[in-house]
Write a protein that binds this DNA or RNA. Structure first.
Lengths: 168, 168
DNA sequence: TTGTCTGCAAACACTTTGCACTTTT
DNA sequence: AAAAGTGCAAAGTGTTTGCAGACAA
């Protein structure tokens, strides 16, 4: 409902809230709007940081008001949210990390190999290069992922504050 | 030995063969030059395609002349080769994929989400952008990874030839 | 000889699946 | 009522580890 008031997220305006968008997606696929799915979408959009399945499960555990959801359900729902275009998934250090996609502008990441922080940045040039390269190779590009890894400013100073994992 | 004759790989000239380079690395670390490590380096450099641990293990199994190496040894050696700068590792569709790094020019990839082919390309602009973005964020960049995903020309024509996995 | 390496089997982390029961439609 | 979803426990995948015997230095 209320398609009238726009929902603002990040810097982009969209007319449906993530939850509405997800409901739409589910209906279009003949899937059901269950309280688990509803609750998971809500928790996911509670804040904007990157997260992995485990963190989301913890968040849900520590927010019992919203209800309960098992590990498999969380994984299943995350997959659906990616399909719905609500979340973007990337794999870092051996596990999947998710971030908001719907209504959030295109961007790439700086990844600190020491503290595993992700810093977002955007560059129009990247998309331009992507299209140029793709057409050179008769490739139909659907997206891209650029991760610049290195040391963030904090870790450049505080060397050896924490053990380096260096998993990319 | 024979540092005299250059070893040519791809388009770059280097003075040590991968095997020599690896020996050097091992010695510097007080590690030993075993017949397994020797054999693995050799098999890895037999051809230039991207490969994963399983493919390498198969290759070794089907090339008994070279000797034998267990799964753990292959994994351990691949890790060492990455540390030695001989191989570059990336994670695609849930498993690690390796490619030659030593003596091979910097490049990025087009990844076909249908047939999982990797196509290499290089763009100087990317490195320029990388450095610009890094310095904007007081970040010390150590490297980057750009993967443009989509459909290769083959898969654009032969739609549905094989099931789409779409794992990025 | 000494300390590293190997191979085996078992352990691992993360994610997915089979299935009986519950819930939405 | 019918179909889809959930949670549990168990199975997967790809990769790593502990340890006793094998081997390079």
């Amino acid at each position: 409902m209320s398609v009238a008031d726009d929902f603002s997220l990040g810097t982009v305006k969209v007319s449906l809230s993530p939850r509405e968008r997800f409901d739409e997606f589910l209906q279009a696929r003949g899937k059901r709007i269950t309280k688990q799915r509803r609750m998971i979408v809500e928790q996911v959009y509670r804040r904007h940081e990157h997260f992995d399945a485990e963190q989301l499960i913890d968040l849900i555990r520590n927010t019992p008001e919203g209800g309960r959801a098992s590990r498999p359900t969380v994984y299943r729902t995350l997959t659906e949210m990616v399909e719905a275009g609500l979340l973007r998934k990337m794999v870092l250090g051996g596990r999947a990390v998710y971030e908001h996609d719907y209504g959030y502008p295109q961007h790439d990441h700086l990844y600190c190999t020491s503290c595993h922080t992700l810093i977002e940045f955007s560059s129009d040039e990247i998309v331009r290069i992507r299209e140029a390269v793709a057409s050179q190779h008769q490739f139909r590009s659907q997206g891209h992922r650029l991760i610049i890894s290195g040391l963030c400013s904090d870790c450049r100073s505080n060397r050896s504050r924490s053990r380096h994992h260096d998993r990319v």
